[in-house]
């Protein structure tokens, strides 16, 4: 599905801060969306979260405990906000050398980390479906 020039994949969940979530068994893979990477422009560095870090699902006001590292372009830094509470199990080490994968393959090779969610049932409801995310993107113009 496309909204304007922005790709949205079926089968994933989304957030208003432009992360995607893919459930894999009892784990959740997280990355940033096509919209997010286009907003950022050329990504030059990805600050990965530490493995074992425990994070909270993102709510306002945002705090450091909700961050899963950050994505940097030449002139901007954008925190990656955790869509779910849980623990960081794995991070995408390839991004250390090839941060541009965030631009070229945001939904696949450019994944950022894998979480072990601690409260899927309680939190899943606040994630956006592809349709809901598409509607949200349209409001951004």
């Amino acid at each position: 599905m496309k909204v304007g020039e922005h790709e949205i994949l079926e089968g994933l969940y989304y957030t208003r801060s432009h992360e995607w979530i893919k459930f894999e068994g009892n784990l959740a893979r997280v990355g940033v969306t096509d919209y997010a990477q286009k907003q950022l422009g050329d990504v030059v560095y990805v600050e990965l979260p530490e493995i074992g870090k425990s994070v909270k699902q993102t709510t306002e006001p945002k705090t450091k405990e909700m961050e899963l590292g950050a994505v940097e372009s030449i002139k901007a830094v954008s925190a990656v906000y955790s869509p779910l509470s849980g623990t960081v199990k794995e991070t995408n080490q390839v991004l250390q050398d090839r941060p541009e994968l965030i631009n070229t393959s945001p939904y696949s090779e450019g994944w950022i980390c894998v979480l072990e969610p601690s409260n899927i049932e309680g939190e899943r409801g606040s994630l956006l479906s592809p349709d809901a995310y598409a509607t949200f993107l349209k409001t951004l113009g």
Binding site: E72, I74, K75, A76, V77
Partner: peptide, 12 residues
């Protein structure tokens, strides 16, 4: 590496 600097990362 300007993202280290104050005009982008402000208090961080």
């Amino acid at each position: 590496l300007q993202t280290r600097e104050q005009h982008i990362r402000r208090e961080r």
